[in-house]
């Protein structure tokens, strides 16, 4: 069960917003890069989310753009516990699963910035504790759920010595 505050943004948040391409080469240290997470959209993102953790909530097509895996990684390192969006760009979605960042496709219209959320990944439901509402979602296909449960693709390979799905 994942529980944290919602940080809400809009549609079409691309990977350059999540982590600007100009930082891609600055460092391979994700902790240092995480400071710049979402910076062009919200310069305070890291400062707000890092201390107590947060759930990033967005509209449609979250993570469009580049294949940079730094995108889910900086979110993880900024203490983002999960991303909820109406839809995700494909590569970002894969990268999130592969790096162990829970991503959930669901209706995010009735979530407001600051709402307290609880995500039940297996049960397929987001509970909005502030509003007392529940948002159902289709649980992940088994292959993806397995990778996420193993903690991402690297851990999966370490554990099974290759693909075991």
């Amino acid at each position: 069960m994942i529980r944290a505050r919602a940080f809400k943004y809009g549609d079409d948040i691309n990977t350059d917003y999540i982590i600007s391409g100009k930082y891609k080469f600055k460092s391979a240290d994700m902790e240092a890069m995480a400071v710049h997470a979402m910076e062009d959209l919200d310069p305070e993102y890291y400062a707000k989310v890092k201390p107590a953790g947060g759930i990033l909530v967005a509209g449609k097509n979250f993570g469009m753009g580049s294949s940079r895996e730094q995108a889910p990684l900086v979110l993880i390192h900024s203490n983002t516990k999960a991303v909820l969006a109406k839809s995700f760009a494909r590569i970002f979605f894969r990268n999130a699963i592969n790096t162990g960042l829970p991503v959930v496709e669901c209706d995010t219209d009735r979530i407001d910035d600051g709402d307290e959320l609880e995500i039940d990944l297996e049960g397929g439901v987001v509970r909005n504790l502030t509003k007392g509402t529940e948002i159902p979602f289709a649980p992940l296909p088994p292959v993806m759920a397995q990778l996420l449960a193993d903690g991402g693709l690297v851990e999966h390979f370490k554990k099974h010595g290759g693909f075991a799905v």
Partner: peptide
Amino acid sequence: DSHTCTYGALNVFSTGVGSTDGAAAMAS
């Protein structure tokens, strides 16, 4: 790299993936 889809023009199913996917593919 996301623009790996370029070789579709050559009848290749080519697609962009992240680094961890790339690593899994390089390994296996």
